[in-house]
Structures are given as structure tokens and as C-alpha cells.
Amino acid sequence: MRLLTHNMLSCNIKGVANGFPLRLEAEKWVEKEVELNADFLRHIFPKIEWKALAGAARAVGYCELPEEADAAMLDSEDFLRRFHHALLEIHVEEGALVCPETGRGFPITKGIPNMLLHEDEV
């Protein structure tokens, strides 16, 4: 699971109102280089919840993202590189996503988060 995916996932338990962002508990992750596509980064930037991305990146030991970001930063090569790295080059392999409201953990195994709900959660 990449952090772009993390950035759109919300806790899906019935009745949970503030299920975003899921807290990332990463035990194992890998980094894989991907070609940087500046047009894509500009396209996706307004859709990203920046605080959630920066927090998830910290959970995998990447602390190079600013606390806040605005569209003007997209003119900086350096910013684009960091944004690209955090969003697309880090793959969480093992760990969990934890609902901020209920504390329920969704395990990530072999890179795949298990978001199936128990019967009393639907």
C-alpha cells in the first residue's frame, strides 16, 4: 500500500464519523523508484489531505515533507521530488491502519490492508 492510497481511505465502520486519517502503524516497508511525473503531481495535489500525508510519511521514517503545503510550492523541483517520493515510492508491506475514533486496527499483510468488517460493524 502506497501513501496515496492511505490518503483516501477512511474507517468504514458503521456509525464512525471521524474515521480519517487512519493512523499508520508501519512495521515493514520498501521503497521503489518511480519516474517523476510533474503533471500528475500538480493534478493530484489539490486532492491530497496534506497533514495526513505528512503524518503517514513520518510513520515510515520520512520526515522531509513540510507541515503545511500550498500550490505555490509546486514550482519547486525539490518540493516535487519529496512529494513524489512520499506519495508513490514508499510501499507499506506489514503493519496496521488504526481508526482514530474507535481504535480498531485494520491489519496490512503482504502490502494489502484488510478492510473487511466484522458483522457487528456493518
Binding site: M1, L4, N7, S10, I112, M115
Partner: peptide, 20 residues
């Protein structure tokens, strides 16, 4: 190819709209 997978019931998905 690197693609992400999620184990989930599509009908129970809760995603922020429009990222996809």
C-alpha cells in the same frame, strides 16, 4: 507492475471522493 490492493467489500468502501 506495482499496483495497490485492498481487501474489502466494495459496498462498504469509504473513500474520500474524487481522489480516484
Amino acid at each position: 507492475l506495482d499496483i495497490d490492493f485492498i481487501w474489502c467489500d466494495v459496498n462498504k468502501l469509504r473513500w474520500r471522493d474524487d481522489v480516484v
